[in-house]
Structures are given as structure tokens and as C-alpha cells.
Amino acid sequence: MLDEEIIELLFQRSEQALKELELKYGKICMQTSYNILGNRSDAEECVNDGYLGVWNAIPPTRPDPLITYVLRIVRNISLNRYHKNQAQKRNSSYDLAVEELADFIAAPESIESVLEAKELVSTIESFLDSLSTRDRVIFVRRYWFFDDYGQIAGRTGITEKNVSVRLTRLRKQLKDYLEERGNFL
């Protein structure tokens, strides 16, 4: 079913919309949530909460593209659940991905204002624009979707070892890019 048709069902308050949403985007939502939480039942709960979030937001919103809208909701819910869950073991793909970025910021106090946060986002976007398509996808799959190396290798057609090598280089490039622009001193 097309995104527009799903959105139309949501506007009509038809529960069929949620079924269609799950059919079309359930797998990717589940994978993204699982990458963060490392736990299937928690991930299922968060994905279902995500669908509820979509139900509550549409209408009046008409997101385009729908997929990224749904993913952001599921991702945020999953991250909130992760941070609330104090007993969570540090073995999810999210944990590993976050640890890789541990040396990026000189001091948390260096970013305080909303303006600085927005500037950081903008800088990261221009960094992403400077990359080849494949490198950009590798980076986003790792640090937005928290895919593991095997998942990224399968999607991009390179080996896991190559993914690891490329991510090491990309992190270094990003660090240099941010430092040149004075984001982290």
C-alpha cells in the first residue's frame, strides 16, 4: 500500500492503517528498536508504542516521507526505554556504536544551548554531504540505525572487516571535521 493511502486510512481513523503500517514498515522498525535495546520483547513494545504515536500524530500531520517519520518515533521511544532501563546490559548494537563515538566531545559543557545543538546537527549534515553515497550510508546505518557490522556489510556489499575499517576512518574524518569548525576544542 502506498504511504498516501496509509495516511488516508489514518485520517479516516481506520485501524487498518496500523495493520498496513506494520506490514510495510514493521520489519525495519523492529530491527531499529532491537539494535538499541538488544531485547526482542522490549523492542516489540516500543514498536507498538511507536504505532500508537503515529496514530496520535496523524492527523493532523501529513508526513512525507512516512518511513522516516515512523522510524524517528520508534527510535526515540526505544532510546528513552533504553535510558530508563538501568539494569540493561551493555551488549546491544547501540551500546557498541555509542562507545565508538566516546572520544568525540571534549566536555559536555561545551554544548549547552539549543543553538549549539542545531549547529552541531548542521555541521554533521555537511560532513555527510562530503561523503560518497556508500560511506554516508555506512555511517548512518551504524549511528542512526545502530546496525551491526554484519548488517551493514550485507546492505553495502562489502565485508565486515571492510565496514570496520571504513567506520574507523569515517569517525576520524568526522572528528577532524568538527575540530576544524570549532565544534569541539
Binding site: 522510524l71 566516546a102 568525540f104 554533521i124 556508500r134 548512518v140 542512526w144
Partner: peptide, 28 residues
């Protein structure tokens, strides 16, 4: 954690990067 700042920032990048990463598949 300080590293969550950068993770949050990456999480807020524009939709076009997310969409590209969803649809991308390597050519054989």
C-alpha cells in the same frame, strides 16, 4: 554520557539521509 550528545545530533539529521540509508542496496 557525553557521547550521547553526538548520538543525539546524528539522530536529528535531515530525513533525506535516513531515507537514503533505508533504500540503499549495493550493486552486485
Amino acid at each position: 554520557m557525553k557521547e550521547t550528545k553526538i548520538v543525539e545530533a546524528i539522530g536529528n539529521v535531515d530525513d533525506k539521509y535516513i531515507k537514503e540509508a533505508v533504500t540503499y542496496r549495493a550493486k552486485k
